[in-house]
């Protein structure tokens, strides 16, 4: 193992089911049900997954959902907007904590 993250490890995901396989099966059934077309299209779900992948900064997921989004007919415009959605929600989540700063300053200063 030369790196913590190896590209080929993505294809080994099913090895997680080596121990307690029934738990992995629960996950996969849930995953497949969630990601199938429903009220949202497969393309929309792939874009949401791509945004989440950026938010949680998972290189496996970014690789997988870039491919999934393209395979679902998406394009660079849509994927870039998805990245920006992740960025602004993360940024907003940082900034909203600034209210705690205000509150604390309010509480302890004259």
């Amino acid at each position: 193992m030369s790196h913590y993250y190896e590209e080929n490890d993505l294809e080994r995901f099913s090895e997680i089911g080596k121990h307690r396989p029934e738990l992995f099966d629960y996950f996969m059934n849930y995953y497949q049900g969630v990601m199938a077309a429903g009220a949202l299209t497969v393309r929309e779900k792939a874009l949401m997954a791509l945004a989440v992948a950026h938010a949680v900064q998972c290189p496996y997921c970014i690789d997988a959902y870039t491919r999934a989004a393209l395979s679902a007919g998406s394009n660079m415009e849509e994927m870039t907007e998805a990245m920006h959605v992740a960025a602004v929600i993360r940024g907003g989540a940082t900034l909203i904590h600034g209210i705690q700063v205000h509150n604390t300053v309010e509480k302890i200063t004259i």
Partner: peptide, 17 residues
């Protein structure tokens, strides 16, 4: 056809788009 090394999307939804 895909513009690279990936599979095509489902034909029906892509046709709609």
């Amino acid at each position: 056809n895909p513009a690279g090394a990936y599979l095509p999307p489902d034909q029906g939804p892509l046709e709609d788009r």
